[in-house]
Amino acid sequence: MAHTPFAYNLAHLIGATVLMMGFGLLYQRRMTAVIRTYALQAMALALAAAWQAAIQDAPHLYATALIILLFKGMAVPAALQWLVRRLGIHRTVETALGIGPTLMAGVGLVALSIVLVMPMDIAATAITRESVALAMSVVLLGLLMMITRRNAVTQVVGFMSLENGLLLAAVGAHGMPLVVELSIAFSVLVAMALFGIFFFRIRERFDSLELSYLETSRGDSQ
């Protein structure tokens, strides 16, 4: 398919959906809703990858889309839901900063990434400025979520959504080899397994997944 303005516009619209789900993660107040929103974000990302496969004539991106859909859209959310049930965590999200200020900070971060992207010379690169701005915003929102949430599970969701932003940039760029995306996907899966083990260890030690307890074990407090 040719690189028509329509193709680019639809790609950006799907990218914007991924970004909106990033805001949705910051907006939700229930653990199950957060995980569900994360699954939706991953599905939107899979759609973005599939659309890029169609407009770039790059069949390997279909494989990427399938991997994202199966692992990040289904397996990881199911595992997180199982963990939440198994660990008997509080069903509400505990925040370090209120929901409203967090959302405002999120818009600030989007503006920041746009300011960073504006001076870029698009003629020289294989990716449009909008794609970079969208992907960077998703990454920064993931970071923001990791900073402003107290519970370990929501921090992990933040990490996973940050990684969604990286993949969004990767599928938008021309000629990104499949092996890079595969290795990212598998390292995230390994990270997920490690996080799962850590959750059990942390709870065993402190009877809670509240990460502020860890500060007393760090050795440099007092």
């Binding site: 914007a16 805001f23 409203g100 818009v107 989007v110 746009i114 992207v117 701005a133």
Partner: peptide
């Protein structure tokens, strides 16, 4: 939160015009 979200969406719409 709901209407703040609407305001933020509208702000983002304006910001993305610049790109």
């Amino acid at each position: 939160d709901f209407l703040g979200g609407a305001l933020l969406l509208a702000l983002l719409a304006t910001i993305f015009l610049y790109v």
